[in-house]
């Protein structure tokens, strides 16, 4: 693990992974969209609106997955002072915020025709909204504190505290009465969703996952560059007068 603490080594690894991740992303989006629109039937209750599910559910899954990446990175950064781990959390968060916003928006656009309302303040919708604010708070802390060391520490602590929200999101549909349907894919007794709808759902989930890998690696490289620049700036400031 500590081998990848070296930014140069990380950049090399990222450059090996990136073309494959981009290829997988393009293929999975192509196949996923084909199944989502052409090779899957309308739902017997939801009709054609079920097609929103093929982007709603992957966005929601990735929103939670990305949060766990941010939290795990924050934990590693706080406990082992791993410099790249700190940047990993910072690199993942914007994608997580976008996934969460998309889960909320697509859910609302499906809820209006199916439930008759864009929004209810139930456990599931509220806890996902909290997740969105956790991402915004995490990113805001990075922005608000000038000292990067302190900023990273504060943001990491927030990310770790926010982890309690993840099981709340997952189990909210079992704990509280809600309009939101219960899990139909990740269940102890196996998926209850029909295979013809599981295929586009899993392909699109794979596409979102590959998209995350691509954007995450790009942002890691970006954060490494930013760190290099701030180190260079500091070296400049401490350079002897007349060195310019």
């Amino acid at each position: 693990m500590h081998r990848f603490a070296n930014p140069a080594q990380f950049n090399r690894l990222a450059d090996v992974i990136l073309p494959w991740a981009i290829g997988a992303m393009v293929l999975l989006f192509g196949a996923g969209l084909y199944y989502a629109f052409w090779a899957s039937p309308p739902d017997y209750q939801q009709g054609e609106s079920v097609r929103v599910m093929y982007i709603h559910v992957p966005a929601a899954w990735l929103a939670m997955f990305t949060y766990m990446v941010t939290a795990a990175a924050s934990f590693t950064a706080l406990v082992w002072r791993h410099p790249l781990a700190l940047l990993a959390g910072k690199a993942a968060a914007p994608a997580g915020a976008v996934f969460t916003a998309l889960a909320l928006l697509t859910g609302m656009l499906w809820g209006k025709p199916m439930w008759g309302t864009f929004w209810v303040w139930d456990g599931r919708l509220t806890s996902v909204l909290v997740l969105f604010f956790l991402y915004l708070g995490y990113m805001a802390l990075w922005q608000a504190i000038d000292d990067e060391e302190k900023a990273g520490r504060a943001a990491s602590i927030l990310a770790l505290v926010g982890v309690v929200n993840i099981p709340i999101i997952k189990f909210s549909v079992d704990w509280w009465s809600t309009l939101h349907q219960p899990a139909s894919v990740i269940r102890l007794d196996g998926p209850t969703i029909d295979g013809s709808m599981l295929t586009p759902l899993l392909l699109m989930a794979g596409a979102y996952q590959a998209y995350f890998v691509v954007v995450f690696l790009w942002r890691m490289k970006l954060e490494i560059n930013r760190r290099k620049l701030s180190v260079a700036r500091q070296a400049m400031m401490h350079a002897p007068v007349g060195a310019e």
């Binding site: 309308p42 054609e48 097609r51 982007i55 914007p94 998309l102 928006l105 656009l109 499906w110």
Partner: peptide, 27 residues
């Protein structure tokens, strides 16, 4: 889309726009 055009295409449009925006601005 069986009468759900507004909802389905808005959901896909917004998702595509947001994902492309994040990727392009990151690049």
């Amino acid at each position: 889309m069986g009468g759900y055009a507004l909802y389905v295409w808005t959901a896909y449009g917004v998702s595509a726009a947001a994902l492309v925006w994040l990727a392009v601005s990151t690049r």
